[in-house]
Amino acid sequence: MDKNSTSKVISFLNSSIKKGEIPSKEGKLLLAFYTSYQKTVGTIKDVTPIFLTFLKLMIKQFKEPYPFEPYHKQIRKPFDYYQFGKDFVRPLIDRGASSISGKERLREISEHLSQGHNAIFLANHQTEADPQAIFLMLEEEFEILAEQLIIIAGERVITDPLAIPFSMGCNLLCIYSKRYIDHPPEKKHKKQLHNRKTMQLMSELLKEGGKCIYVAPSGGRDRRNARGELEIAPFDPKSIEMFYLMAKKSKIPTFFYPMALGTYNLLPPPETIQVELGEERSLNRAGVHLSVGPQIDMEHYPGMDHPDKHLRRKSKADYIWKLVHDDYQKFPR
């Protein structure tokens, strides 16, 4: 990218901050984000048009924040936020170093959906760009599935200004995760009520049938341990059991599949969990990997005969986590 293009984005950003259209705190984050994005993909694509579009979407949000409902349907008109999110993330993905496995399962899932059945992916989660990475990996052969996918997302994707334009292009069921529900304490009850409403909406969606849902039972992103090794975060037994019971209650055939994602290098999360909004984003161009394993038998698993129901549920969660973990370990390093 030439210097004129770079200065055009920076000038627009500085002008927007000066006019009060973008708060100074977010302005600094946006400058760092732009610098990282331009450095990462600027040699293969002129990032000026799409980043200026992103800044204009940000200004629109600061002026008039979008009122997300507990169940948000992706916005395709008059502006196509779904396509915008894909186009923004696309140059970050090195297609030659990427892989997708389990296509026969994806075809199987597409058939289930066409029959009015449901499918739920129990997956790990690594970056804020996971939804767009999934969309891009599916778009060549499974575009309809990508467009139908409903993401179970934490509230940060609808409250962090930098994430909102991307979230508007997703089908979202938004919940407050256990990591953040107590912060701040005075809002805990309100957050709990929101979560109950969201779960009721998901129950209604499953009863309608033909729904495909992605959920990360860990409740957060995978991170590196003290030795610097990337670990698949453990799955929460209560989360898995809740989805399973809701699926049974729907009376609609619902099929569970393990999904392993390898997207960490695109946009590594902070080393520690941040309660406050406003994390810096550091981007990389990298291969991404997606794998969908065989359908999970939710009734039969190691430890299913244990007399303690809590240990049975933990055994199920650990079993499903291992399915995802083992598929993840097969990804190229």
Results as ranks from 00 to 15, higher is better:
111 E>M: 11
111 E>P: 02
112 H>P: 02
82 Y>R: 12
99 S>R: 10
86 K>S: 07
87 D>R: 10
123 A>W: 10
89 V>C: 03
111 E>D: 14
97 A>R: 15
81 Y>R: 10
105 R>Q: 15
105 R>N: 15
109 I>D: 05
94 D>G: 08
116 G>Y: 12
102 G>P: 05
98 S>R: 06
92 L>P: 01
118 N>K: 13
109 I>E: 07
121 F>E: 03
119 A>P: 01
81 Y>E: 09
114 S>H: 13
95 R>H: 13
84 F>N: 04
111 E>C: 08
95 R>G: 07
91 P>H: 02
88 F>I: 01
96 G>A: 06
121 F>T: 03
102 G>D: 05
97 A>W: 06
115 Q>S: 13
88 F>D: 04
86 K>V: 00
81 Y>G: 06
105 R>V: 05
112 H>V: 03
86 K>I: 00
118 N>I: 09
112 H>K: 15
119 A>K: 06
101 S>E: 11
103 K>T: 14
103 K>Q: 15
120 I>A: 07
110 S>L: 09
91 P>I: 09
100 I>S: 04
116 G>L: 11
105 R>K: 15
106 L>V: 07
101 S>F: 02
110 S>K: 14
90 R>I: 00
84 F>Y: 09
101 S>Q: 13
113 L>A: 03
100 I>D: 02
97 A>D: 14
98 S>I: 10
97 A>F: 09
89 V>T: 08
96 G>W: 03
103 K>S: 12
85 G>H: 04
85 G>M: 06
89 V>W: 01
87 D>F: 03
102 G>I: 04
82 Y>L: 10
